[in-house]
Amino acid sequence: MIMTALHVFINELRIMRHDASPFVILFIMPSLALILLTPALGAIAREYGQASVTDSALSVPAMTVMFGSLGAAFVSFSIVRERDWACWSRLLTSAHSTVGIIGGKLLPPMGLVIIQQVLLVIIGAAVYGGLGELQAGAYIVGASFFAITITAFGLVVADMFSSLQKMNAVIHIGALLFASTSGAFIPIESLPFYVKYLLYISPGYWLVVYQKNALLGTLTLPTASISLSILSLQAFVFLAYARARLNCINT
């Protein structure tokens, strides 16, 4: 399984060398958005009485949840693309482990999402400061858990939608929903009451709760445990679904 995952992972990297879109969407777009929108997000937060939170501690999680969610698109895309190229059946009949194939497919986007979150915190700190209390290790752990959850969600989307157009539409709406229900862009107090109940099933919300605290140096063990447990549970559900549905061959 590990060897299969490794070979698929290397192959994915080879393919990515010919396609710059993940780098543009996951790195350049959120970096620009972070630089341009941080003052505005800070102003909105202060309007709602969140004066103690620095601008960077608001905008960095907002950008990570919004653009990190697009990591799911790259997983779905890599699977739908295999079907378009007629390589999926070949992969299933060649590889010794279907779980290995899925693992190999998940690793590159997962890595990109983690790198993205690290890059954004560096840019946020450099341009707007206010991250002096950053719990760096905890921040990377949170980024990793979110990367696993969101890429696993990409597998579910790949199973549900066979065309790239449908898949893209769903992923972009999903990213928007995750971001808007995370409380990062708009203070939770300002959201309609029913959205407040949806927050608790959004991976975005749990990422923002975790990362905001990690950025401000206020992350406690109970807060970290709850956020990471919920993200893990969601990842488990998505992976189990993908394992059952994408496993068209007996392995």
Partner: peptide, 12 residues
């Protein structure tokens, strides 16, 4: 198994 459609990675 060689399926009906050629299964190749085009850019590789």
């Amino acid at each position: 198994f060689a399926a009906q459609n050629t299964g190749l990675y085009p850019m590789l």
